[in-house]
Design a protein around this nucleic acid. Structure first.
Lengths: 196, 196
DNA sequence: GTCTATAGAGAGATAGAC
DNA sequence: GTCTATCTCTCTATAGAC
């Protein structure tokens, strides 16, 4: 259901990358087209040779990010694995995708509500679809008896992704935690439980 | 370190409550003084008889909310309890505080970055102090051997609070989950681990 | 494709009557 | 304390020269 994603001129790519960083840091509304132009060293009006509107920039970032997350998760979801291994792999993959798309990811789950009605509704569905894969694996695990029978899969998915998505607030590539450290800690907290 | 909180006229209280709901729903920047006035059935200019600026409204909401969370957590933190019981109680209390302050809570951990420099820095410290209580209890639990020795307390605190704070996105008083349901699910996910 | 210049809308805030 | 009227600023976006 994802819209077709066209190849980009390098200028368009530059604009999108600057916009991702800016929208992520300041938020969509507080990041102005003037800010964006300044970050690129051009005049604001020049942006409109590449994108029809500010919202079009947000949309382009949003669908590319949704595609990255969906495509990245696809092989794991389609693989023939036990539910507990599959969920573990999906968490690991989600963390890797967060890190690979750290600026865009803020748009994936925070800034997309600024999209206009129709796009907003389409996008909400993409996010529901993404989350639904987690819900489904948890349900499989419950049936198989590897996850506790008392859980509500939707609640768990929400809480689990909220934990990981919060990474965009604190993650720094130069920080003390490697991807692997983060993945192990998330397993520990979200799968194995904190108590020894 | 919290600023003094003055008693309010009922009109001020009305404005703060409408502003909380509005800031929570639309975000600080996208919620205009015109929106706020309309929600209250008055003209925008009238708001300035009660608050000097839009930011003063945000600040008033922010410090009241910080105080609610700090005061609410204080008796549990000061109590003489084992670390695992204390952490459990702090999680429960944090959930109760989220529900009691569901609109203001969005400001407590999302909208406060719109505060001006000095207030922003003061507020950041309040949030660090709040989180530090969780870090401290987790450290105690590690020393006592009831929490796994391999955890990073700051990471766990961040991920744990992110999970709970995400409630402001989905929690509805009329929804199917009671406070107690939510608390039990958070224990299960965050303390006991998902795997059976 | 980038520029200068500016239109047009909406923001926060103030002055002053009542 | 609330109103009408309005100031000033900044925003997104467009027109048209180069």
């Amino acid at each position: 259901m994802l819209a077709t994603i066209k190849p980009l001129t390098s200028r368009k790519q530059e604009i999108l990358e600057a916009a991702q960083a800016l929208f992520s840091r300041k938020g969509y509304t507080d990041a102005s087209m003037r800010d964006l132009a300044e970050a690129l060293g051009i005049e604001p009006a020049s942006l409109y040779s590449h994108f029809k509107s500010k919202e079009d920039i947000l949309w382009e970032i949003a669908i590319r990010c949704a595609k990255a997350f969906n495509d990245g998760q696809e092989p794991i979801f389609s693989a023939s694995l036990t539910p507990e291994i599959k969920l573990r792999n999906m968490i690991d993959r989600h963390i890797e995708l967060m890190i690979d798309n750290i600026n865009a990811s803020a748009i994936f789950f925070r800034e997309w509500h600024h999209l206009s009605k129709e796009r907003h509704d389409d996008y909400a569905q993409m996010i529901i679809d993404y989350e639904q894969r987690f819900v489904q694996v948890i349900e499989e695990g419950m049936k198989a008896g590897v996850f506790k029978a008392s859980v509500r899969p939707k609640f768990i998915t929400s809480a689990l992704l909220a934990s990981i998505n919060w990474m965009h607030k604190w993650y720094r590539p130069e920080g003390s935690m490697t991807i692997s450290d983060i993945q192990q800690h998330m397993h520990l907290l979200l799968l194995d439980g904190l108590q020894s």
